[in-house]
Simulated scan of single mutants.
Amino acid sequence: MGHTLQVKSISHNFGDRNIFSNTSIECKTGEVIGILGRNGTGKSTLFKILFGALKPDNIMLHLDELLIRKSASFNNFIGYHPQEIMLPKGLKVNDLISIYIRDKNKQDRIYSAYGIGNVQNERVRNLSLGQQRYLQFLLVLNLDHHFVLLDEPFSMVEPLYKDLIKEKLTEYKSHKGFIITDHYYLDILDASDRFYLIKDEKIIPLSESEDLVKFGYLSNQSIIY
């Protein structure tokens, strides 16, 4: 059964500065939604709001037909992979997997992912940054959320891990919905089924990649593949 996440009337400001003004976004299971925007437009702020870590001035969030009234409850339905590595560095990989993921089948999925079996007895601190980010991505991916937020999943990882992340998004979107953002816009365009641009306090749906030039995110000289 598919699910729909509808977020309406998002308004938020920091002091005298408006970040969002009565704007909306929608995501369904089975799709990857890309979010683009220049520095400071509110991409990470949006994710913290959707996860319930930051309370906005106003928001209406529906999961299917159910209105979720308390922002602190959003994380019951929405998983979050932040920019930062949040994993306990002193734990071994296999201990970490067993703590975060209780379902044996899901544990096996993680162990079968590229490179994880080879480092399962290593402590997290001994992994490369790319390995740590990929491990954190896999853990969030296998939590019991219908929707997952991925904040800069392609940043600071080798090209190999970018490809692996895209493969996993394709595999898991059969039963999950994803909202992702990154400064590597070509990776966002490649991985996403639909995409939005945050500009002038709004979350603007775009119909084609050339709209990124139209709305000033890219210059006319930029190459869009």
Rank of each mutant, 00 (worst) to 15 (best):
Gly2Ala: 08
Thr4Ser: 15
Leu5Ser: 05
Leu5Pro: 06
Lys8Trp: 11
Ser9Pro: 00
His12Phe: 15
His12Ala: 01
Asn13Ser: 15
Phe14Val: 12
Phe14Ala: 07
Ile19Pro: 12
Phe20Gly: 14
Phe20Asp: 08
Asn22Pro: 03
Asn22Trp: 05
Thr23Gly: 11
Ile25Met: 01
Cys27Asn: 13
Glu31Ser: 13
Glu31Tyr: 04
Val32Ala: 07
Ile33Ala: 09
Gly37Gln: 01
Gly37Lys: 02
Gly37Thr: 04
Asn39His: 05
Gly40Phe: 02
Thr41Leu: 02
Gly42Thr: 05
Lys43Ile: 05
Thr45Lys: 09
Lys48Asp: 11
Ile49Glu: 03
Leu50His: 10
Leu50Asp: 08
Ala53Asn: 11
Lys55His: 00
Met60Ile: 04
Leu63Pro: 09
Asp64Leu: 02
Leu66Phe: 04
Ile68Cys: 05
Asn75Ser: 13
Asn75Leu: 00
Asn75Cys: 08
Phe77Thr: 07
Phe77Ala: 08
Tyr80Ser: 05
Pro82Ala: 09
Pro82Glu: 08
Gln83Met: 05
Leu87Lys: 06
Lys89Glu: 15
Gly90Asp: 14
Gly90Thr: 10
Gly90Glu: 14
Leu91Trp: 14
Lys92Cys: 04
Asn94Lys: 14
Asp95Trp: 07
Ser98Asp: 11
Ile101Tyr: 07
Asp103Ile: 00
Lys106Ser: 01
Asp108Thr: 09
Arg109Met: 06
Arg109Asn: 12
Tyr111Gln: 10
Gly115Gln: 12
Ile116Phe: 11
Asn118Trp: 08
Asn118Tyr: 10
Asn118Ile: 02
Val119Asp: 00
Val119Leu: 03
Val119Arg: 11
Asn121Asp: 15
Val124Glu: 14
Val124His: 08
Arg125Phe: 10
Arg125Gly: 11
Arg125Val: 03
Ser128Glu: 10
Ser128Ala: 01
Gln132Lys: 15
Arg133Thr: 10
Tyr134Pro: 01
Tyr134Glu: 05
Leu135Met: 13
Phe137Cys: 12
Phe137Thr: 10
Leu138Ala: 07
Leu138Thr: 04
Leu139Pro: 03
Val140Thr: 13
Leu141Phe: 01
Leu143Lys: 14
Asp144Ser: 14
His145Tyr: 15
Phe147Lys: 05
Val148Pro: 06
Val148Ser: 10
Leu150Cys: 15
Leu150Asn: 13
Asp151Thr: 09
Asp151Gly: 13
Ser155Ala: 15
Val157Thr: 12
Val157Ile: 15
Pro159Val: 07
Leu160Arg: 14
Tyr161Met: 04
Ile165Trp: 13
Ile165Cys: 13
Glu167Trp: 00
Glu167Cys: 02
Thr170Asp: 12
Glu171Cys: 00
Ser174Phe: 10
His175Phe: 14
Lys176Ile: 09
Gly177Ser: 10
Gly177Thr: 07
Phe178Leu: 11
Ile179Ser: 12
Thr181Lys: 00
His183Asn: 12
Tyr185Glu: 01
Ala191Phe: 02
Ser192Arg: 02
Phe195Pro: 00
Tyr196Glu: 03
Tyr196Ala: 07
Ile198Gly: 12
Ile204Ser: 08
Ile204Phe: 04
Leu206Trp: 03
Ser207Met: 03
Glu208Leu: 00
Ser209Met: 08
Asp211Tyr: 07
Leu212Lys: 06
Leu212Val: 09
Lys214Val: 09
Lys214Met: 02
Phe215Asp: 00
Gly216Trp: 04
Leu218Ser: 11
Ser219Asp: 15
Asn220Val: 04
Ile224Asn: 13
Ile224Ala: 12
Tyr225Phe: 14
